[in-house]
Write a protein that binds this DNA or RNA. Structure first.
Lengths: 253, 253
DNA sequence: CGTTGACTTGACGGAAGTCAAAAGGTGTGG
DNA sequence: CCACACCTTTTGACTTCCGTCAAGTCAACG
C-alpha cells in the first residue's frame, strides 16, 4: 500500500531510503477503522498515540452551547490528527470520521524516538505542523473577509490541491464523502444557504458535486473566483534546489 | 527587565535555573523597536532570525485583492512571530506592529542549538506553537458560529487572559493600543458595525475601551457572554503535579 | 483655529439566516 | 421487489443582521 504521509512530506523534502523506510514503518503498524460519523478523538480526552489518516475523511470540530457545530479543519489521507499529544495534556477539540476512515495508530514514544534519530524527519514534521497552521489562518481569512461564494470556492480549491498531493485527484475529481450540512458547518453557513451557493458554482460550470464525488470542471476559473494563492501550502520544496515545483499538485499551484 | 517569554512558558512547565538563564539570554541579545503601524515581516520575505515580542502589540495579517485586511492573530509580549522560519522558505503572511513594539531578534541557529540542548525547552516551544494553533482554531469558531457580540466578547476575554499571563493586566485593565478599525479587521466586521457592537458591550457595563486602554469591568459576565472555555489555552500545567492552576491568569480561567 | 484622524450616528440596502414544506435518494424490511 | 421510513437536497417566503454610504462629532495637534 502507498503511504500518503510520505507522499505529503515529500512535498517538503526528499528522503533517504532509510528515512523512507521509517515513514513506512510508521503507517504499517497498528491500524484502526472508524465508521462514518463516529468520533476518533473527543474534546477532553488524554491521548497517548498519534493517529494518521490513511484513507477516508475526518474533521476537527467543536460543538457550541446552542448545539451548532463548527468544523475547523478537514483531515485527508496523510494528515496527522494529533501532533499536540507530545505536549498538551488533553484534546481541546474533537475529531470525527465523516466517512469510514482508516488511521494508523502509533504510540507516541515510537514517534519520539524517530524524531531524535533523524533531523530531516523532524523538520518534515515541523513543516507539516506549520502548514496546518497556515491552513487555519487561511480559514480565518475565508470567514472574515470573503463572501460565501468566494469562501466555498477557496475551500474546494484547497481541498483539491491537498487530494492531488496524495495522489487521489488525478483528473480533478475525487471522492469527497460528506453532506452539504457538513460542508456548511465548515464554511460557517446554514445548510440552506450553503445549498444556494453551491448551486451557483454549479450553474457557473465550476464544480459538480454528486454521489459523494467532487469534480472540479474548471480549475482555472475556480481558482480565480477564490482569489486563490497557494503560497500558504508551502509546496515549493526550495531546499531540493532542483527547481521542482509541487510535483503532484501540478499546474494548479 | 522581566522576560515575558519565560513568564508565558512557565504556564506550561517549571524551568531549572540553567534553562531559565537560557531563556533570559534569548531576549537579552539584539533588539529592534518597530514604530507603530510599520511592518515587522512582510509576506514573501525570507527570514533568518526569529522575532520575540517584548513590549507593544503586533498582528499577523493579510491584505486581499480588494484592499480589505484580515488580522488573523494578535501578538502580545512573550509571543514569537515566526517559529516557521525553521522549516518554511518564506512568510505566507505579514506581521505589523500596531503600536510601538520592541522585539528580540535572535538568529535561528542560536535557537536551534538551544533546542538540541534542552528537551524541556523544546517541549515548551512546542507547547507555545500548539496553543497558538488552538487560538487560531478558536478564531475560526468565533467567525463561523458566534454572532458579532459573542465574537468580540470572546476575543477580548482571551486577550485579557493572555495579558494576565505576562503580568500586564493585574487589575483586568491593560494598555491595548489599537484603533476600532484594527479590531474590526480582526473580528471580521466593518468599522461601523464594530463600533455599534462595542457600544453594546459598553452600555451593558462589561468593558470600557478609552485612551488605548481596555478595562474589563465585569469579567464574569463577559466570560458568560462569550461562552468562554479556557481549555484551548492549555494553562493547566498538569506535568508539574502540584495542582497549581494558571497562576497569573488566576480566577479568570 | 483649521486640519486631521478616530469615533459616532442615521438611513438604507443586501446578503445570509429562519421557518416551513416539498422533492429526491437510499436503505431496510416485509 | 415494492413500500416505507429516513435522510439529504431543494425551493419559497419572510426576517434579521450586518454592510454601505454619508454626514457629523470629537479630540489632538500644528
Amino acid at each position: 500500500m502507498d503511504n500518503p504521509l510520505a507522499m505529503k512530506l515529500e512535498q517538503f523534502t526528499a528522503f533517504t531510503a532509510d528515512e523512507r523506510q521509517r515513514l513506512d514503518e510508521l503507517v504499517s503498524g497498528r491500524r484502526h477503522t472508524y465508521a462514518a460519523r463516529t468520533d476518533i478523538l473527543v474534546e477532553g480526552e488524554k491521548v497517548n498515540e498519534i493517529h494518521i489518516v490513511l484513507s477516508g475523511l475526518a474533521a476537527r470540530y467543536k460543538i457550541l452551547a446552542d448545539g451548532s457545530r463548527q468544523i475547523m479543519a478537514f483531515l485527508v489521507p496523510g494528515d496527522i490528527c494529533d501532533v499536540e499529544v507530545f505536549v498538551l495534556a488533553e484534546m481541546d477539540h474533537s475529531i470525527a470520521a465523516l466517512a469510514e476512515t482508516e488511521c494508523a495508530v502509533v504510540p507516541k514514544r515510537i514517534v519520539e524516538s524517530l524524531l531524535t534519530e533523524s533531523s530531516n524527519l523532524t523538520r518534515a514534521l515541523w513543516w507539516s505542523t506549520m502548514t496546518d497552521s497556515a491552513v487555519l489562518r487561511e480559514r480565518i481569512i475565508d470567514h472574515g473577509r470573503r463572501d460565501t461564494r468566494e469562501r466555498l470556492a477557496h475551500l474546494l480549491y484547497e481541498i483539491l490541491l491537498r487530494y492531488r498531493i496524495v495522489g487521489e485527484a488525478e483528473d480533478n475529481s475525487f471522492r469527497f464523502p460528506l453532506t452539504q450540512e457538513e460542508l456548511a458547518d465548515a464554511t460557517g453557513m446554514t445548510p440552506v444557504h450553503f445549498n444556494r451557493v453551491l448551486q451557483e458554482l454549479r450553474s457557473d460550470g465550476l464544480v459538480e458535486f454528486r454521489a459523494k464525488t467532487l469534480r472540479v470542471l474548471d480549475p482555472v476559473r475556480l481558482k480565480a473566483v477564490a482569489q486563490f494563492n497557494s503560497n500558504y501550502l508551502h509546496l515549493d520544496r526550495t531546499e531540493a534546489g532542483d527547481g521542482q515545483v509541487a510535483e503532484r499538485a501540478g499546474d494548479l499551484v
